[in-house]
Design a protein around this nucleic acid. Structure first.
Lengths: 87, 87
DNA sequence: ATATAATTTAGACAGTTGTCTAAATATCTA
DNA sequence: TAGATATTTAGACAACTGTCTAAATTATAT
């Protein structure tokens, strides 16, 4: 995990909102999309960025792809940021 | 303080390094610059972004501008991020 | 007042990013 | 095997970003 890729991923408000949604429950792309006013390809792009940062994972369930928070990485990022902000 | 501007400011590695330096001690622009391989105008740009995000402040000391961490905002950002990362 | 030192502002430029439309891929169901 | 559904890939484009050089600003010291 490189902090740079992680922070870049976190710098966009849409992506932060996706993470907030996935904190509550796993969701398909279509379900995530209902919370935004962007096209599916745009959302797919954001999911790609979050995937590359290893912040989310997905599994297939019939036709749908179900995305989830990658909890271990998410918590690791939290630790690193807390350390960064510790004076 | 808007999280968006803050996160945008934190997304660049040079700016994060500037904050790390200022965590240790207040520094003039020239002194900060010795830690990087960029021109003064580029550094000045980064300081501007951090200023706009209210993460740093400065005072004049003779010819020099001495930059410091804006501790209250810095700690507030920490709180917000910890909350964000809390599952 | 003039020269020097410290920093910012102005303007340009290449690279990155977020968005879109159109097309492709993958899976399920009838 | 078709047709429908879910999602991604490809390619284009405007906006934003980080960098630079050159010039301007601000303050000090001679």
């Amino acid at each position: 995990m490189t902090l740079n890729i992680t922070m870049q991923a976190l710098s966009d408000p849409t992506r932060r909102k996706i993470l907030e949604l996935l904190k509550k429950k796993d969701m398909s792309v279509t379900e995530i999309n209902k919370n935004f006013d962007i096209t599916m390809p745009s959302l797919s792009h954001h999911l790609g960025v979050l995937k590359q940062a290893d912040l989310i994972t997905y599994r297939r369930q019939k036709q749908e792809l179900i995305y989830s928070l990658n909890l271990s990485v998410f918590e690791n990022v939290a630790k690193i940021l807390i350390k960064f902000f510790k004076k």
